Amino acid sequence: MQRVNMIMAESPGLITICLLGYLLSAECTVFLDHENANKILNRPKRYNSGKLEEFVQGNLERECMEEKCSFEEAREVFENTERTTEFWKQYVDGDQCESNPCLNGGSCKDDINSYECWCPFGFEGKNCELDVTCNIKNGRCEQFCKNSADNKVVCSCTEGYRLAENQKSCEPAVPFPCGRVSVSQTSKLTRAETVFPDVDYVNSTEAETILDNITQSTQSFNDFTRVVGGEDAKPGQFPWQVVLNGKVDAFCGGSIVNEKWIVTAAHCVETGVKITVVAGEHNIEETEHTEQKRNVIRIIPHHNYNAAINKYNHDIALLELDEPLVLNSYVTPICIADKEYTNIFLKFGSGYVSGWGRVFHKGRSALVLQYLRVPLVDRATCLRSTKFTIYNNMFCAGFHEGGRDSCQGDSGGPHVTEVEGTSFLTGIISWGEECAMKGKYGIYTKVSRYVNWIKEKTKLT
C-alpha cells in the first residue's frame, strides 16, 4: 500500500490518463441519441435557420407576430419608411378606419389613436360632414345658397324668414311668412316636400332668348283662358290664391305678392273693366268669414305684352289694390325667389296649380277651390304637342294621358313649387288646347323671366 501511494504521488498524470480511459469505455446513459432527441424537440425550422439574422431580410411573422416588435424591426421587413409607417399605425392600436367614419364618399386613412378623412370636392370637416359648395344638395341650405369668396357655403332665406341657429334652416321672422300653410287642420295635408338634388348652379339658368321682337298675326285659340281631375282644397291650404270678379264672377285667378299687390295673367284683364279681388276665398257660393274683398285701382301688364300681336306672350300683369290686405292664416303671400332659384325650383319637376275653373272641358265651374299636382314636361315634348308657338318664356306641365289639367277660369292662378315646406311661385296658368285632352298640356308663363320686374313694381313704400 505504501508503494502504491508513492507511485500516485510521483505520477499524477498517469492516474488522470487511467481515469479518462475508464470513462470513455463506459456506456453513456444520461444523453439520448440524435434521433430520439429530435422526437422530443420537434420544432419547425425557421426561415433563416442556421444563418445569422443580421444578414437576412426581415420576416413579418418572425419579427412582429411571434413577439412584439419595434418600429426598427418592422422597418427591416418593409425596407421602406412609408410602408412601415402605414403598417405601424394599425399594428400599434388597430384600424381606426374600420367603422368607416368618413361621410359623403370620403376616404379614410388610419393613424395612431386617430384617423384622417380625405374629402371629395365640396366637403370638409373631420368626417367630411361639412358642405362647402352650393353645387351639392344646395349646400344643405333649406332655401338659398351662395358661395363666399373663400368658396364656403353661405345660406340665406327669402323675405319674412331668418336663418336658424344651425345656419342652414329657415324659420319665420314674421307672423305670416310667405308660402307657408298655417291653418292647423290643413298642415297635415301639406304636399310632399321637395329635397334639393345635386345641381350645376353655374349652368342652372337656361341660355334662352326671349323672342321679344317676333311679330306674329293673332292666333285663334280655343278655350285658351284655361282644375280638371283635381281635388277639393281645404280652407287655408292655398292662402296665396285669390279669385278675380268682373263682368262675371271667378273669371280668373291670381296670387298675393304682398298686402297691396296681386300677380295674374295679362290676358285676364281689360282696361276700363272694374275688377274686384277676393282673398281668403274657399267656396265661392258661401260666406265663410275668411274672405277679404278689395278693388283694383291700377293694372300693370308687362311692358312687352301686346294682345294685338299675341294674347299669351309675356302673359303676366300686376294688380294694385285700393287697401292693403290683412295677412292671416287664410290670406298669405306666395314666396318669389330670384331668377336663378325660381328656375331651379321649376326644374324640380312638379308643381301645384289651383283655381275655381271648370271641372271638365266646357263644363261647370268649381264651387270649392280645386288643386292638382302636375309634372313638368320637357321642352321637346311640349313643342311636338301643339302647332302653336311655345315661346321661351312659357313652359308645359300636365299629363300625356289627359284627364287632369287646369281649365277655363283658372287662368292667372299660381303654379307653385314647394321647397322644404315653403311654396314659391314658378308659373302662372296661361293657356292650353281644350282641357285635359290626351297628348295636350297646360301652358304656363315662366315666372323666372319676370321676377325682377315683379319685385321692382310691387315694392311697398
Rank of each mutant, 00 (worst) to 15 (best):
G13K: 13
I336R: 00
G246L: 04
P177F: 00
R364P: 14
S448C: 03
S156N: 05
I336F: 07
N100Y: 11
H314K: 02
Y450F: 05
K311L: 12
V248W: 08
G280L: 01
C18M: 09
G432Y: 13
A173Q: 05
S448T: 06
T133G: 14
M65S: 05
T16Y: 07
V30N: 15
N138R: 12
T458N: 01
E401Q: 13
V183A: 08
I443W: 14
L321P: 00
S448F: 02
V195E: 10
N127Q: 11
E259R: 06
S107A: 10
T194P: 04
E159I: 06
K51F: 04
Y115A: 09
D322Y: 02
R140W: 11
I284Y: 09
T194F: 11
Q370N: 08
C407S: 04
F71Q: 15
V419E: 02
H400G: 13
T218M: 04
N38F: 05
L327V: 13
V359I: 13
L376P: 09
I454V: 08
D95I: 10
Y161M: 03
D93H: 09
G179K: 00
N127H: 15
Y47V: 10
T458K: 02
L211Y: 10
E456F: 04
R298S: 10
S430G: 07
Y312L: 07
D322G: 08
V248D: 07
R162M: 05
V154S: 11
N258I: 01
C435W: 02
L325N: 00
L24T: 04
E418S: 13
K260V: 03
R75I: 14
V273D: 09
S187T: 13
Q216K: 03
T133C: 06
L24A: 07
G230R: 09
Y115T: 15
R140N: 14
Y352P: 02
K168F: 13
S25C: 07
F71V: 15
T16P: 03
F196Y: 10
V269E: 01
I429C: 11
D200E: 10
M394D: 01
L325W: 04
I390K: 09
L460V: 03
L325K: 00
V296P: 02
E86D: 08
I454Q: 00
E434M: 15
G427V: 01
Y441G: 02
Y161W: 08
C407R: 05
G230A: 11
G355A: 15
E323W: 09
I454K: 02
I284D: 09
D33Y: 02
I112F: 11
G13S: 10
G351A: 09
F399K: 04
L318K: 01
N38P: 15
N104A: 09
A164W: 03
T29H: 09
T290P: 06
S385R: 14
W356I: 12
C170K: 00
I428Q: 04
Y441R: 04
S114W: 09
T190F: 10
P333L: 00
R373H: 14
G94F: 03
V154C: 05
M437P: 13
V359G: 13
K126P: 12
G439Y: 08
K438Q: 12
E27V: 02
N36C: 05
C382G: 02
E79F: 11
I210W: 12
G236L: 07
I210R: 07
T225M: 11
P301A: 08
A207P: 07
Q2I: 10
P239F: 01
I336Y: 01
I428D: 01
Q90F: 05
W356S: 04
S365A: 15
Y201M: 11
T209R: 05
W356H: 13
I299A: 04
K457G: 07
S204C: 14
N213C: 07
A207G: 08
E320W: 01
D93R: 13
P239H: 01
K234N: 13
G21C: 03
G122Y: 07
V359Y: 09
C335T: 01
G58C: 13
K68H: 09
C108S: 00
L383I: 13
N213V: 07
D111M: 11
C108V: 02
K274H: 13
C134L: 02
E420D: 11
S49M: 08
C396L: 02
F196P: 10
S204L: 13
P375M: 13
V447D: 00
I309G: 08
M8N: 08
Y115C: 04
E61G: 13
E286M: 09
N203E: 06
V273H: 14
N313D: 13
G236W: 05
F251A: 11
D315S: 02
S99T: 14
C145G: 02
L372M: 14
K293S: 06
R3E: 04
W261S: 01
I275N: 03
Y312H: 10
M394A: 12
E208R: 10
A250P: 09
